[in-house]
């Protein structure tokens, strides 16, 4: 349900962003047409931060409370972080190639910290698949989830402190904010809501799958004669 609504919203955002939202000033951008990827890039990055938050919460719940729900949140958060992180990184690279002439800058703090968060999510997803389920696996990956979250506030403040290539904030920009036209802000809002709903749906399904995997493993252990 959530996935369906979210997906429809994302498609609507794409349509509105590409066809309805006004063009930006040609003087402000090297490649004004490429700017429209912004309606995909910013909401996906927003959803990625929500997913990173879920990943952190799940990691903390498992690490400190040994909560099975915490582990399911960790798994769901890692998968959602990877999906949204890749969408944000990919769209950012496309936009960067058009606007800056280079898809990536190894000296830009925002780009690198966000890229690392995505790599961390990839590490957690692939790593979990390579290991048998157990407290050793869960403890180790939860620790990485907890430490990795240090990058989230760093990523958020990066453009405020070291603005090298990535532009400053367009949302929650403080006194300097509010530069978006109302129609642009509306499309962005629809995008953010759609991605949020989509990612919540994705995580709910992921948690359900993890729960079923755990039940299957328990059943297999019972057949093997274990506890």
């Amino acid at each position: 349900m959530c996935l369906g609504i979210g997906f429809a919203g994302i498609m609507s955002t794409l349509f509105l962003g590409l066809n309805w939202a006004p063009s930006v000033s040609i003087n402000a951008f090297e490649s004004p047409a490429a700017q429209r990827i912004f309606y995909w890039h910013v909401p996906s990055a927003w959803a990625a931060f929500i997913a990173f938050g879920v990943l952190f919460t799940g990691s903390a719940l498992w690490f400190f409370k040994r909560s099975p729900l915490g582990w399911r949140l960790h798994v769901a958060g890692a998968e959602a972080s990877l999906a949204c992180g890749l969408m944000a990184v990919w769209s950012g690279c496309v936009w960067g190639a058009a606007e800056w002439g280079t898809p990536w800058d190894w000296t830009d703090v925002r780009l690198n910290t966000f890229g690392l968060l995505t790599l961390l999510a990839l590490f957690l997803v692939l790593g979990r698949q390579s290991q048998p389920d157990g407290v050793e696996t869960r403890d180790t990956f939860s620790t990485f989830g907890l430490y990795g979250f240090i990058l989230v506030p760093l990523t958020y403040v990066a453009t405020r402190i070291w603005q090298i290539r990535h532009p400053g904030p367009v949302i929650a920009a403080g006194d300097d904010g509010g530069s978006l036209q109302s129609s642009m802000a509306l499309v962005l809002l629809i995008g953010a809501l759609s991605f949020t709903i989509f990612i919540i749906g994705h995580m709910m399904i992921s948690m359900r799958i993890t729960h079923l995997e755990q039940r299957l493993e328990q059943a297999q252990k019972s057949l093997d004669g274990g506890n």
Binding site: N112, G115, L116, L119, L120, L122, F123, L126, G127, S130, Q131, P132, G134, E136, T137, D139, T140, T143, F144
Partner: peptide
């Protein structure tokens, strides 16, 4: 950090080196 895992060599630890 990954030595405690059952299969430490199978984990994609080098993904974090960037």
């Amino acid at each position: 950090s990954t030595m405690r895992l059952a299969r430490p060599n199978a984990v994609f630890i080098r993904l974090l080196l960037p």
